[in-house]
Amino acid sequence: MLSYTIRRLALAIPTLLVISLIIFLLLDLAPGDPMAQVPLTVPPEVKAQMREALGLGEQVHIRYWKWLVQMTWVEPQVLIDHLFGTSLSEGKLRILSWQHRGPVMDVVVQRLPQTLWVVGTAYLVGILIALPIGIWSAYRRASLFDQAGTFVTVVGYAMPPFFTGPLVIFIFSVQLGWLPSIYDTTHRVTDWNSFTVQLRQMVLPVMVLALQTTAQISRYMRAAVLDSLGQDYVRTARAKGLPEAAVLGVHVLRNALIPVVTVIALGLPAVFGGAIITEQIFSVNGIGAQLIGAIRAGDLPTVHTITFIFAVLIVLANLLADLLYGWLDPRIRYE
């Protein structure tokens, strides 16, 4: 297991390197000029110096190497400095955003909590709804509940967030007037009142994202429980007189959860992708909104960094899913 983990980790590093190189080369083809906004009155030699300062004059491989060093060596040092008050990164150049003229990671760190709050809550809510639906759908197969569950899945699959988002805004904000349609990022939770305001503004984005999660996970859960219900150990558990609650809650659930847990781990990065759209609809000022803003402004270092962060999340989720599978199910042996 340990050697397998180490081997997988070793394989993840070249994967990430290649992905970051692909993104970098793609961005390098960009026709946009970051100096386009600079006034014409600025003399050409000053412009050349500014270009130099942005690191644009260098060869492609040197710029990629610089980005790589900044991303994987300097930025972790900044993090360590921040956590422990050391000064490892002093005087070292960080990845600078062309848009903000400041370090990209500073903005990412500002934006990430907003995304994590909304996406994390939505994923949790989605899973918590999906698991009981999946279990009961499988247990009462072909019942009215099962058909309703199938319908929710189909709706979640057929109605993408950019349709459900405006729809729930129309129903709950415009018609009923219950909930705000815009997520106020500057809102601070200080007392009970402001906490309820925070809760209310989170309901709609969480609803939209959770529907997607519920649709997927409940389907997997249903299939896994169905598979598990037909196994010999379930018949044994029933034959020895265990109550149905114990059969379902212990014997079936524990076995059915094994594949579902890996699906949950694998789905995490996809939710971040979906959050890009949901953030746009509800004006959540998160990392997805930052990416869209950077793409529109032609802020290539920010685009590269955030896309790379997404890639790291995907690779880590794959790794996590594989390791969890082996850890939860001792029948699976990695050699």
């Binding site: 992905i19 793609l26 961005l27 083809l29 960009a30 026709p31 992708g273 793409i295 896309t307 995907i314």
Partner: peptide, 23 residues
Amino acid sequence: TDLFLALPLLPLLLVMLLLFRDS
């Protein structure tokens, strides 16, 4: 195939659309 599956597709698609639109 594994490499492509590990790419963050939505951000990459957005970048591709932005970069090659004019050309």
